[in-house]
Amino acid sequence: MGSVNVRKNKLYLDFRYRGERCREYTLLADNTINRRRLNQLLEKIEAEIVLDLFDYGKYFPKSKKAAHFSLIDERKRQSIAAIDTHNSPLLSVFADIWLAEKKIEWSKGHYIDVSGVIEKYLTPAFGNQKISSITKQKILQFRSILSQVPGRKGEYLSSSRINHIMTPLRQLLNEAADRYDFNSPWKNIKALKVGRTVIDPFHLDEVESFLNAVPDAYKAYYITRFFTGMRTGEIDGLQWKDIDFVNKTIKVKQALSRNELKELKTESSYRDIDLIDRVVSVLQEHKGSKYTTSTFVFVNSKGRPFCYPVVSRTIWYPTLDAAGLRHRNPYQTRHTYATLLLASGESPEWIAKQMGHSTTTMLFRVYSRFVPNLTRRDGSAFEHFLNNGGH
């Protein structure tokens, strides 16, 4: 924030431009009218600085600082001109080429996510620039601007979301640099630090309170979520052919994303989940009920698989309110399953397989404070734990 100051009864402006302190002296006497005039001028200057529209020579043509910044601008123009000599396309043009090439590789959901980021954020910022002219300074300035953009709930974009937006930009620049033979500006730019995932599992009595409050049409769905630890996409994509009632298992082999079944992200995610009797019973009852008429286990009134945002908004959060429970995101059902298994004394190796983790490393890192001395390996301790009210 600049200021209007006085020296030898003459007013001068004191402000910062491009990281440098600037003082510009006037012949105006120190009085109320002149101070008001200079404060108005200073406000205009600072607004133009923020918008990157400030021309130092326009306001202070005889200033040494004007010549100094003019020289810097000329060098910058020469540098950009040199970069622009590369035979590279506009970012918007190359992004279209790149997306068309990647479409065959990516899932539908991933393609929609990346193309959405390019359309909403990257094209407005860089679309009309040659991709070879995008500098590290521009990248960092863009990221800084993103940190001041309001999100959907009025809060600023999170570090995780900003990283998500920056990833396609990095991929575009690195791929273009390789194709058009220029040095990628993406050097030593680290992703923003993201806080640890919030683990806020339900206690067993809270689980029961939720299940008592949830509408009947969704009771089987949430019992299965709480007592299998399946991810949202996994349970929404669950089909009857993947349930073995004889051996009491669910075979997890696909996930539903944007109404499309897709492969799982990691090899360890393909797994067989051992079911407790409570889940088996509720699924058998659900199969013969009016709430399912599809190859999918859980469907809406139109016979289509559940849509996570709709179910979350219309069922999950209203049920939390009805049960008098604090708001948590639906993924906490998975965390709840893991912590209940740990509290019941099941083997970490068995729990890791149930959760779809390749090793116990993540289990201990994420849920370490919930781990007692563990000995069981077959699921019976968990069954006993539930049947005895969590004791």
Rank of each mutant, 00 (worst) to 15 (best):
L140W: 01
S269H: 11
G57R: 12
N5Y: 09
A67Q: 13
K302H: 11
K290C: 08
Y270W: 10
T85L: 15
K10Y: 04
V246I: 12
L51P: 07
N212R: 14
R376W: 09
N300S: 08
N247D: 08
K248W: 02
L238Y: 03
D84V: 06
Q148Y: 10
D55E: 12
K287D: 00
T361Q: 13
C307L: 15
P318Q: 11
N183C: 09
H68R: 15
T266F: 10
I351G: 00
Y111G: 02
H86S: 12
L157V: 03
R313M: 04
R21T: 04
E383W: 08
H391R: 15
R170W: 09
F210P: 08
H110G: 00
M230V: 05
E43V: 13
R231W: 06
S380P: 08
H164K: 15
V280N: 00
W98M: 00
A213G: 12
P348S: 02
E20H: 14
Q141N: 09
E24I: 04
R18L: 11
P185G: 01
I199R: 07
A177Q: 07
V282W: 06
T224K: 10
N174C: 10
R7M: 04
G57P: 06
R35H: 05
I315C: 07
V282M: 04
T232A: 13
W186P: 01
K58C: 12
A191D: 13
D272A: 09
R7I: 05
P318W: 12
I83V: 07
I273S: 03
N212Y: 09
L211M: 04
S358T: 08
I104P: 00
G356F: 05
D73E: 14
K153W: 09
S184E: 08
Q239H: 04
S344W: 02
S301A: 11
E43R: 14
L340E: 00
D55R: 14
K120D: 00
S184Q: 07
N259R: 15
F202G: 03
L325T: 05
V311N: 02
